[in-house]
Amino acid sequence: MRLLRAESMRFWARTLIRWAMVAGLVVAGLVVLGSWSTSTPPPDEVQASMQADFDASVKDWEDNGETYVADCLAAEKADAEELGEPLDYECDEMGPPVWADYAYFATFAGEGLSTVQLSLLLVALLTLGVGVTFVSAEHTSGAIGNWLTFEPRRSRVYWSKVVAAVLGVVPVTVVMVGLIAGGSLWAYDHHGALGRFDLDQDLRPYVEMGFRAAVLALGCAALGAALGSLLRHTAIVIGVVAGWAILVEAVAANVFDAIKPWTLVTSMNAWIQGGTAVYVTECDATDDSGMLCDWVEHPVSQAQGGLILTAVVASIVLASWLVFRRRDVA
C-alpha cells in the first residue's frame, strides 16, 4: 500500500497528466455541446418549409398515387417481357409520403448513439496515453533506477505502477463517460429527439454500454502503463501504436478481409456496442469459371470482443512485468 500511495502521489503530481485529464473533460464537454447542437430542432421557418413540402407530397399522392402504382406495374411487366425474366420494381411498397423523409431531424437512435459510441473510444485513447506517459517518464528520466535503490522488489514496484495508473484514471473515466453518454442522451431527450430510442426499454442496455466503455478505458490505462514500462519512451509507444493502427487495423484488415473480425478496433466496437458486424468479401467460382464475390456480414459478439481485448491487455501487462523483473536498469 505504501508503494501504491507513493505512485498515486506521483500520478497526481504530474502536470502533463492533469492537463490530459482537463483536455479529456473539454472533449467530453464538446461532445455534449455537439449533441445539443445536432438535436436542436431547426428554426420555425425551416420547419414550415418542410411541412409545406410534405403537405404538397401528400396531396400529390392522394391525387396521383393510384396512377403512380399503375405506371410502375406496367413498366415492370413490360420490362420483364422484354428481358424474358421476372422483375420486381417493388411497386407494392409504394405509399403515401412519410414525414421523417421530409423533416431532417437528427435523432438519438440514429446519429446520437453512434456519436456516443465513437466518442467513448476517445476515453480509452486518453487513458492509454495517460498510462504510457505516467510510467515511461520514469524510465526516460532515469528516476526508476533511483526508485529501485529504495524499493528493490521489482514485482511490487511494477504492479504498484500499473494499479496506480488504473486507479488514477478512474475519476476522469467516470466523468468523461458520464458526460458523453449521459449528456448526449439528455441533450437529445431535451429536444424530444430520441427517435426510436425508448427510455423504458433501451436505457438499461445504454447504461451497461457506458459501464463497458469505462472498463475498456481502465484496461487501456493498464495497457499504457505496461507499454510505457516495456518500451520506456513515450515516443516509441506512440510509434508502435500508430504503426499497429496503420499496418494492421487499416492496411492488413483491408487487404486480408479474414482478419477483420479479430482486429482490435472491431473488438472494441463489439465490446462497447454489445456486438457488431463486419463485412467480409467472399468469392466463389461460378459454373463458367468466373468468380462471384459478395459482401457477407460476419457478426462479432460482445463476448468475442471482450475476450480478445482481455487477452491482449493481459499478455502485454504480463510480458512487461516479466521483462521489468529481469531487465538491467541504467
Binding site: 500511495r5 507513493a6 502521489m9 503530481a13 504530474r14 502536470t15 533506477g145 533511483n146 526508485w147 529504495f150
Partner: peptide, 23 residues
C-alpha cells in the same frame, strides 16, 4: 548512482515526499 535522477518537473520536496511515502 552516477548523476542524481529525480522527476525533473517535480519540486525537490515533492521528489523526497514520494520517496518517503514509498519507504
Amino acid at each position: 548512482v552516477e548523476h542524481p535522477k529525480f522527476y525533473p518537473a517535480f519540486t525537490g520536496r515533492k521528489n523526497l515526499q514520494i520517496l518517503a511515502t514509498g519507504i
